[in-house]
């Protein structure tokens, strides 16, 4: 990894997203703060229902935040935007979806699926769009002959490549990948991850990688934020998150990863996370604090002291 002065690309500032109103209000994402640096892979991990996808979709500007804002390159991107900015952002921020079986238009041919984002734009002619599609297909290692076929003719891995090509054709800077490999077979997963990392190297892409599979994230992400019930409970570099998880929820997640080693697995004691048992917030509510450099945990004063000791290896 190249050491660099991190340059902030995306900032999430006190973001809350809710659905419904009044009595039915459900807050899916609550008071989230973090920044994603240019060129890094930022992981979001959490169980289903923790708000990972809601967060991703809010960054994609598909949901409007209830409170707080998201800034891209220093500029606010949530809420109402001038049309020109809106268009530019659509190009810059793209998404790769979870299920390649349902995220492609079954009735359109591959070339249309890939170029759809470019069509109808005044600055791109049809020929240019096709050229762009050609190069996008080439960069995901799909032959151009596939362009005139329909999605059902492809395997899951190939379909996910089409999904990636569709994002690439817009020449994005930032890609939100929402569980891009969850629906794929083990051997195809490695291929898609390798493709994503080579694209990142070539194009200097920044990824936000949403997943529940921690074992992949350790390998793939630079920094990881763990989400629990809509709140970020811990944020650290991928390595720290695995070797030294501080929050009991993250610790339970890391513990639950099945290791490919029968001797370890058989002796492992399974820990379940129960927030009512783990935390006593009756005296003081927790806040998000930096325990050691770059390692943030949701904790109150008492817990922070404990976590600091653990981080320093005193406990």
């Amino acid at each position: 990894m190249i050491m660099r002065q991190p340059e902030t690309l995306l900032e999430i500032d006190n973001l809350s997203v809710g659905f419904g109103r009044g009595k039915k209000l459900y807050i899916a994402v609550q008071d989230i703060n973090f920044a994603i640096y240019k060129g890094e892979t930022f992981g979001i991990v959490g169980e289903s229902g923790s708000g990972k996808t809601t967060l991703g979709r809010t960054i994609m500007r598909l949901y409007n935040p209830m409170k707080g804002e998201v800034r891209y390159d220093g500029k606010r991107i949530t809420g109402r935007l001038p049309k020109s900015e809106d268009k530019a952002l659509t190009r810059k921020i793209q998404m790769i979806f979870q299920d390649p079986m349902s995220s492609l238009n079954e009735r359109a041919k591959v070339d249309y699926i890939i170029t759809e984002g470019l069509l109808g734009r005044k600055d791109v002619s049809k020929e240019e769009a096709l050229e762009a599609a050609k190069s996008a297909m080439a960069s995901v290692n799909l032959p151009w002959d596939f362009a005139s076929r329909y999605p059902h003719e492809f395997s899951g891995g190939q379909r996910q490549r089409i999904g990636i090509a569709r994002a690439l054709v817009m020449e994005p800077e930032f890609i939100v990948a929402d569980e891009p490999i969850a629906a794929l077979d083990m051997s195809i997963r490695a291929q898609i991850l390798n493709l994503m990392s080579s694209l990142q190297r070539e194009r200097g892409l920044t990824y936000m990688f949403i997943s529940h599979d921690l074992s992949v994230m350790r390998y793939f992400c630079d920094r990881i934020a763990a989400l629990h019930k809509g709140k970020v409970v811990e944020l650290a570099s991928a390595e720290t998150m695995f070797s030294k998880p501080l929050h009991p929820y993250t610790a339970a997640l890391v513990n639950a990863i099945p290791q490919p080693d029968p001797t370890i697995q058989r002796s492992k004691h399974h820990v379940a996370y129960d927030e009512t048992l783990e935390h006593d917030y009756s005296k003081q509510q927790p806040s998000f604090r930096e325990i050691e450099t770059g390692h943030f945990v949701l904790a109150n004063d008492k817990e922070a002291i404990k976590y600091e000791k653990i981080a320093k290896g005193q406990l």
């Binding site: 997963r189 390798n194 990392s197 074992s215 992949v216 490919p260």
Partner: peptide, 16 residues
């Protein structure tokens, strides 16, 4: 066994 992501090294391609 080689293609397990658990065993991947950062910055290197995963085995396929």
């Amino acid at each position: 066994l080689s293609s397990m992501p658990q065993l991947g090294t950062k910055g290197e391609d995963l085995f396929t």
